[in-house]
Amino acid sequence: MSTPRIATLADRTLDFVMRLVEAPINGFEWLFGRKRMPYLFLAPNLVLFGIFTFLPIAIAVGYAFTGGTELFVADRPFVGFDNFRQLLACEDYSSPGSCRESLFWTAIWNTLWFVGFNVAATLLVALVTALILNRAIAACGFFRAVFFYPVLLSPVVIGLIWKWFLDRNGLLNAFLQMLGVPPEIFLLDVGWSRFFVVVVSVWFHMGFYTLILLAGLQAIPKDLYEAAAIDAASPRRTLLRITLPLLGPNLLVVLILLMIRSVQIFDEAWVLTNGGGPGTANSFIVQYIYQMAFGSDLRLFGLASAASVLMGVVLLILTLIQLRLGRRMES
């Protein structure tokens, strides 16, 4: 009884809105003809894209080649490649302290390490979970939902929840004490904090990749496994010769996607580690850009943009690889 009433109400509302806005739009159609309507329909989208996506892309390059602390590109002095030179000047790239922008190189090394561990760990956990869920296990839907749940949460919330979990008075320390291990302030220890940034990231995102891999696994025809079973293939051979090769394209896409997103690590790590702490142990590249441009009134927009451009190039390459893989997957 109430559902149709709600439907009628929604109908009436939509009808009312339509009558409000349709007169000028129909006027346009009357003036310029049906064939011009797609341009009108595209206009809001394209205007917003133009102003907030294409314009910034164009300006980004302008920023990277100018200095000073003025916000507007026109007010900024042209400095050529100075920003890039400053970022890249380094005696020994493996030790950030020897570089002019030691923070930048610290961030790069932190990010590289994070990407490496995070990609490996997430991929492994997601793959194992997907393989298990694919075994027609009871309550598969429940587990899928549980693992997926953190994906929906906000990075800030996740940062706070884990911060509390890892607190000096948190549950983990309580558990360790039960085992007789002395409590540890995990987030103030360089090694532990880096470890837990990866743990939290895996915890946060693995459900998403599990879902993609599971979809890939379920697309593998069942009769292939039946044929393999009749051919007396061992489980190891079935995994190596059937499952993984057929899942290969999905795995590659997941790998690239995971890399693209890992490079951009910021939100949850920022909250969890109180802005990259301890010290700069968890300062990543996006955080560097954010701090140079907006943090504590530095207003080094040129330096930040130059770093953005460098990161953008890396992401672009990764994306192009992903697109090419995606296309090959389709064909």
């Binding site: 894209f49 892309i57 951009q264 996006v286 943009s305 697109l323």
Partner: peptide, 29 residues
């Protein structure tokens, strides 16, 4: 219509540019 494919490709291509890359100029805008 004229340019339909080009516009689609243009829009989709922006999928490749994450906000983190253009946040400084986007702030300016």
């Amino acid at each position: 219509f004229r340019g339909d494919k080009a516009i689609f490709v243009l829009i989709i291509s922006t999928l490749m540019i994450p906000l983190t890359v253009v946040m400084v100029p986007a702030y300016l805008v």
